[in-house]
């Protein structure tokens, strides 16, 4: 069970959170003006990376706020959590699956 740091409440068990898929999806500001392909991309197209993934979580059994998580899907390592509207931090997970990173605290985002 992962440890996730809510940007407002601090580090908590994963069981307090719910998952809400890919983050930073842009809803077309004027949906009527986009074509079916663009609208379809907003509705359906999701990244499924092997590696870093920016995703939305919600502190369902806590402050009930949405926030973003930068997670490596290969080893579930969480590199950062940040508030909606903040831009994702720039991290380099590399191809060595984080082996060179000295900080290996459980679930403690840097």
């Amino acid at each position: 069970m992962l440890l996730i740091k809510c940007p407002w409440c601090g580090t908590r068990d994963m069981s307090e959170f719910s998952y809400h898929g890919e983050a930073h999806l842009l809803r077309p500001p004027a949906p009527a003006e986009v074509d079916d392909a663009q609208w379809g991309a907003y509705l359906f197209a999701r990244k499924n990376p092997k590696g870093l993934h920016r995703e939305r979580w919600m502190h369902a059994h806590g402050c009930r706020r949405w926030f973003n998580v930068l997670r490596d899907t290969r080893d579930d390592r969480i590199y950062a959590t940040y508030r909606p509207g903040d831009s994702p931090p720039d991290v380099d997970a590399g191809d060595d699956n984080g082996e060179n990173n000295g900080d290996n605290n459980p679930g403690n985002p840097t």
Binding site: P28, A30, P31, A32, V34, D36, W39, G40
Partner: peptide
């Protein structure tokens, strides 16, 4: 209304 949740999808094929 020009927009509400789901409206744009009415015209999907």
């Amino acid at each position: 209304k020009t927009d509400f949740a789901g409206k744009r999808s009415f015209s999907r094929a």
